[in-house]
Design a protein around this nucleic acid. Structure first.
Lengths: 205, 205
DNA sequence: ACAGACTCTGACCGATCGGTCAGCTAGCCT
DNA sequence: AGGCTAGCTGACCGATCGGTCAGAGTCTGT
């Protein structure tokens, strides 16, 4: 018989509510946008109530902040590391590698603050990401800010964010495995970024 | 004397309310997103009442439709023209030129349906744009859909949409004039798209 | 057994959402 | 003058928004 009252188990058998909520919120923010996502949707998708979301996060904005901060921190670290070494073809290539690691690991976060930074201006984590991107652009193009170099950087950044989130879903029907994406991405991004200042790589397969 | 009663002029001296509303709505949709834009905001920004917006357009969705349709029509025409000629380096280069004309003329529309097609799925004009993009991708990469070629196309598309709308505002402080942007854009897009199938252009400045 | 902290939730709040409707105003035709 | 239409608006509707709050259930240490 064993009454088995009502499945006792801790509130949820899932590991941690706030981790789940962060992940669910990130998916929604990246695909539907921050403004287009309601706390109710996040709660429903994660299997909680709206009140629970607001128990774990002070507000919708605070949730966004916690969701994006790890990615922004990581991007900042990559930039600082690049700035700490003197510029060379080698350091630049290492930077591109770091950058691609970053893109692949934080695709949803990148897509979120890349494509919504204008509408979310004023939110601290978004502004942080914004100045980071400007610094990145200034660093890669240093002094001589030729229009083409800026456009190269912008296309690499926005293109990668788009391709790995929106593009994947209907350009490649099934999501290609990462081990296939990485080299392709590396090749294209290197081509876009490498010649920006150090035009010493005319070799092209 | 000519009394000139009270400036007779039609309700507004502006040329046409619906034209103004379309333009205002487009700016908002592109920068804040469709979900993030309220009819009230559009009305306020254009100097009308919310009721007026709904007088000229049956619904918010209908407004989006009218705003995006010209761009989608144009993109469709470009694709059809490209499909009508047999493939060659020349036809491909002409296509890239058409495509860049399109991007520059319809930057806001492109940015809107590129970066929101997932969240707005189901709206006819968005779905139309979606299948167009898939056809574009299939055409440019024809049969041999190597991952890298798909990524090249995705980066060119998403990157251009991002750079010309979001990127311009904080990457280049002041918006560079079109006559400076066009050649840079042509160079980068050609580099991304040209070698996709016709690898007969090893020349690179 | 008891107290306290931690999670979670439903009920509820004012504000705003997209959308409807009746009515106002001006110009135009007869 | 009178009727018609086009353009525009405020008042209003139910639904949903982000957010508050007072509990209820469960686990801990004592």
């Amino acid at each position: 018989m064993t009454p088995e009252p009502v499945l006792p188990q801790p509130p949820h058998n899932r590991q941690s509510a706030s981790v789940e909520l962060r992940a669910t919120a990130l998916e929604q923010f990246a695909s539907v946008g921050f403004a287009g996502t309601s706390l109710q949707q996040i709660a429903d998708a994660a299997g909680y109530s709206k009140s629970s979301v607001l128990y774990h996060f002070a507000s919708k904005e605070a949730l966004l902040d916690e969701v994006l901060t790890p990615a922004v921190d990581r991007l900042e670290a990559i930039l600082e590391r690049f700035l700490a070494t003197e510029e060379s073809a080698l350091s630049r290539s290492r930077f591109v590698n770091d950058f691609i690691d970053f893109i692949l690991e934080f695709r949803l976060e990148l897509h979120t603050f890349i494509n919504q930074s204008q509408s979310l201006r004023g939110i601290p984590v978004i502004d942080r990401a914004g100045v980071l991107i400007v610094r990145l652009s200034d660093t890669l193009c240093h002094g001589d800010a030729s229009t083409e170099d800026r456009i190269r950087f912008g296309i690499a950044l926005g293109g990668a964010a788009y391709t790995l989130v929106a593009g994947m879903t209907f350009l490649g029907e099934e999501i290609a495995p990462e081990e296939e994406i990485r080299p392709a991405l590396l090749s294209v991004i290197t081509e876009l970024l490498a010649p920006v200042t150090v035009r010493t790589t005319p070799s092209r397969k």
